[in-house]
């Protein structure tokens, strides 16, 4: 929703009265629920998981997971705000990894060539998705399931054909490794810092630049958006290309971190990214959501996903917690939206 900008953009509150107004405003924003969820989950695992969870290694374990999912969750969230889905990311991630591994590992060409080709594949699949969604009018869920299977099959087939197995390894040079595949302090993936960059860029795009308004309008009412003169088809293609690019980026950074690429490495990202986005308060039906929310949702997800290993609890229960969080989040999203709509602002004087 758009009121969220008001807190970030409005001038610093001067008196107790305005602070109260600001808190009041915040409590009506969907991020309020996401933040509460994040705090609850963090406190829970800090208490149950104890010292190790709160050690640098503990932080690293869930931040590394958060960064990889987070980079994909951002464009998936934007697409959801715009009223669309992208499941093909699950195939683009390994497709990009293997492209890099085959070009630079198997054939030994310069890494820059492999990485460019990997990212290019993401852009290409994204373009294809956007084009099909516009042309066919088939729901994007179906279109991207189709392209996911298509890309998956091609990746598997070509990899076996070229490399003779479903996994290809790559030993990256020191410069590229330092930029994309290193561990800072021996445990924090550089991907975390890339994630921060992506977050800043997406924040700028959705909440600061005028294009953000087009994305909300597209998800709010596609026909009205087109009638208002927004280039809805180009915007849809651009969002899918962004999503393809981000997925490919994660694929590229994975192959540089783990030094090998596997055909089936991306599957878990499909549902996980959607869960991060929804837990972060993005409306499933489009038209509302925020980058801050998506980041909070991603952190919450990653903490549960990894925190469970610091406790004596059966790791399978982690899935139960995430499932419950998802349900609660969707219900809270609806509540917050109703509150925001029915709220008539008091005079601010």
């Amino acid at each position: 929703m758009n009121t969220r900008n008001s807190v970030l953009a409005s001038s610093v509150p001067s008196g107790g009265e305005s602070i109260k107004v600001t808190i009041g405003q915040f409590s009506r924003r969907p991020e309020a629920g996401s933040l509460l969820g994040l705090i609850a989950v963090f406190v829970f695992f800090a208490l149950v998981g104890g010292k190790v969870f709160l050690s640098p290694a503990g932080y690293a374990s869930w931040l590394n997971v958060a960064a990889e999912i987070g980079i994909v969750a951002l464009p998936v969230g934007l697409l959801m705000i715009a009223g669309d889905m992208d499941l093909s990311i699950g195939a683009v991630i390994p497709a990009a990894s293997l492209t890099v591994a085959i070009i630079s590992g198997h054939y030994g060409l310069p890494e820059i060539v492999g990485i460019s080709a990997g990212l290019g594949i993401g852009l290409l699949v994204g373009f294809f998705n956007g084009y099909l969604v516009n042309r066919t009018g088939v729901p994007s869920l179906i279109v991207t399931i189709g392209s996911m299977f298509g890309v998956m099959g091609l990746t598997l087939g070509l990899t076996v054909l070229i490399a003779g197995s479903t996994g290809v390894s790559l030993v990256p040079g020191p410069t590229i490794k330092a930029i994309l595949g290193d561990f800072v302090g021996g445990m924090f993936q550089v991907t975390i810092f890339w994630w921060l960059l992506f977050v800043a860029a997406f924040f700028q795009l959705l909440h600061v630049s005028p294009v953000g308004n087009w994305i909300f309008a597209l998800g709010g009412d596609k026909v009205s958006a087109r009638n208002a003169g927004i280039p809805t088809e180009r915007l849809t293609v651009a969002l899918y290309m962004l999503s393809g690019f981000c997925a490919a980026f994660v694929g590229v950074s994975q192959v540089l971190v783990y030094q090998s690429a596997q055909v089936l490495a991306g599957q878990s990202f499909i549902f996980n990214s959607i869960m991060c986005v929804v837990i972060g308060g993005v409306l499933l039906t489009g038209g509302a959501g925020s980058v801050v929310g998506i980041v909070l949702g991603t952190l919450t997800f990653a903490i549960v996903n990894q925190g469970i290993y610091f406790t004596g609890i059966d790791p399978n229960l982690g899935s139960v917690i995430i499932g419950a969080l998802l349900l609660v989040a969707v219900m809270m999203n609806d509540k917050f939206r109703l509150m925001a709509m029915s709220y008539a602002t008091k005079k601010k004087k």
Binding site: M1, N2, T3, V208, S209, P210, G212, N213, W214, F216, A217, G220, D221, S224, A225, N227, A228, G229, I230, L283, G287, A288, R337, M341
Partner: peptide
Amino acid sequence: GTFPLMSIGRSFFVGVEPTRGWGPFKVY
């Protein structure tokens, strides 16, 4: 013509947003 989940200001200017700044740093 109207977007229920958008603010009055944003929905008024859909497609013709007023901006400050320039180029990629345009600010709504």
